[in-house]
Nucleic acid binder design. Sequence first.
DNA 1: CTGAAAGCGCTTACAG
DNA 2: CTGAAAGCGCTTACAG
Lengths: 338, 338
Amino acid sequence: MSVVTIKDVAARAGVSPKTVSRVINGEAHVRPELRDLVQKVVAELDYRPNAFARSLSSSRSYLLGLFIDDPVSGYAADVQHGALMGCRARSYHLVVEPVDLTAPDWAGEVRASIAALRLDGAVVAPPICDDAALMAIFAEAGLPTVLVAPSIAPPTSGTVRMDDRRAAQEMTDYLIALGHRRIGFVQGPLSHSASARREEGFRAAMAAAGLAVDESCVMRGDFTSRSGMELGEHLLALPERPTAAFAANDDMALGVLITAMKLGIAVPEQLSVCGFDDAPSSRAAWPQLTTVRQPKAEMAMAAVDILVDPEFRRKAGGEGSQLMLPHEMVVRGSTGPA
Amino acid sequence: MSVVTIKDVAARAGVSPKTVSRVINGEAHVRPELRDLVQKVVAELDYRPNAFARSLSSSRSYLLGLFIDDPVSGYAADVQHGALMGCRARSYHLVVEPVDLTAPDWAGEVRASIAALRLDGAVVAPPICDDAALMAIFAEAGLPTVLVAPSIAPPTSGTVRMDDRRAAQEMTDYLIALGHRRIGFVQGPLSHSASARREEGFRAAMAAAGLAVDESCVMRGDFTSRSGMELGEHLLALPERPTAAFAANDDMALGVLITAMKLGIAVPEQLSVCGFDDAPSSRAAWPQLTTVRQPKAEMAMAAVDILVDPEFRRKAGGEGSQLMLPHEMVVRGSTGPA
DNA sequence: CTGAAAGCGCTTACAG
DNA sequence: CTGAAAGCGCTTACAG
């Protein structure tokens, strides 16, 4: 049990607790010899500052909250991993707070966490980062907040995102370059702001290539593979079947893939299928899905950096910085020439 | 910003801070009228005890650590979700601590977390719950520790698990009942203790049915779908091809399924495939995988309960309790008559 | 550059 | 049943 306190270190080093505090926190104005001495004693005694005492007397908790809708999804896991790595690199700790906007007292629970834990900052994942009521709670608590892939950009400490629109456009350009002209699009749910941006990118690319979008080939899903399967049945039963299907996420693309398989439509020979996210399901499929890698972990890590590292924040554009991280097209076996 | 302190509540209620403290912590010996009055004031002022002050003066932090190998895996996500729900139900908070046993100073990082956060307890997920060095750190720190699905049962505060051996036996029984006699088995990696238990169950069922296990049909994978695909190629190229393949987890089963599909072997008509875990990948496949649902979230929630609820702990068998939670066979489309 | 004093917001013992 | 005192282990302001 670590029972070494700052007093023990001070006594052993023959200095005051305040000097030990200075050394630990890397403050200036300590003679080099003293600094070295204290550091030596700290190491010898294996002293670890009590985070609670620290945060009780200072205004910092060294704790960041990750507010997330559904911590079980693959998306959430990547975001969390990134946030975790960011915290670790900076000696912060991460408290994961699931937020269920449909629960009766979700707001009370969020407020309780903020108040009890004196969080130093919040990282908020989609889709809840688009909820105005939640944002209001953070603002009211004066909690520095960085949003990951939000739809809009409310006045928070910052946002980190990727260019969904452009990525969808690139994917569509790629399909067009393969010779596809009749391309089905499976939209994501309206509740996820990325849905709209991905659709915009798709339409922009089609328009730029002078291709008409047949609205009977555009249908709305809910990001589950089940909806992809159902919509796939409609799409593939169309009198004039599309030669390619682009789904707004991988799970739905997987659903389309499965339906094609059931119907005996060969992928990619008779139908190219592509998704978005580079989710685990994109690799579980066969053929593996062509998709867009979303820098989920990187976005979360950058969010942490903005929160705790003044220098990083400055470089990212200061308070309210809007960081855009690069994505990546991942071409696999599910797409081919028309 | 919540700046209401215990003093504010005490002053407004006309009692001492100590009385407020008693009410908040549900201690006995407070006159009902006073109790009601204090509770009313707490509600009015929206008072939230400062968790740090609380843990500084008491010995509790109201913080539990979830120590986990790879927070990105689907397994981890379920475990975490359960732990989170357990904490929420009891006003604890969860700090997720990834442990990479291959990192140079993982032990130092674990010690630092324990010391800085004064954790009240640790929930440890597989496979790291089988690491002796890690267990030694917890023991040395005097940290109550509950293991989820461990292989062995070192002297910790408790373990929560399912009966892997029996579940594998039931799955094998099921295949045998379907008429399968020649059954391939894809072993999990030796690093996961469950691998051995699942194999034992498979062999026990075969033996009980008087069936010989052809060792050429038993091969070791590493729990990835890639290994399942590779081993599937060997398995399905065998001169006497098995009519069923049982993989020690879903990802590998999925790999076998994909290989079968590539080779034009119909599932389940020509080959039954089943996995273990009820991972997301088991549903992403087509046909969907027959598998065993492992009560991952439930195990983690029970681990939290053992840690923080004396009554639950007593019911579970007191210190060092060994809790066994029920699993469930999930029969889907990937298995059929031989 | 260094330290003595006070205080963060609670709870633990101890009285009564 | 209730409260006054002391203290948890740090940091903040303030001196020097």
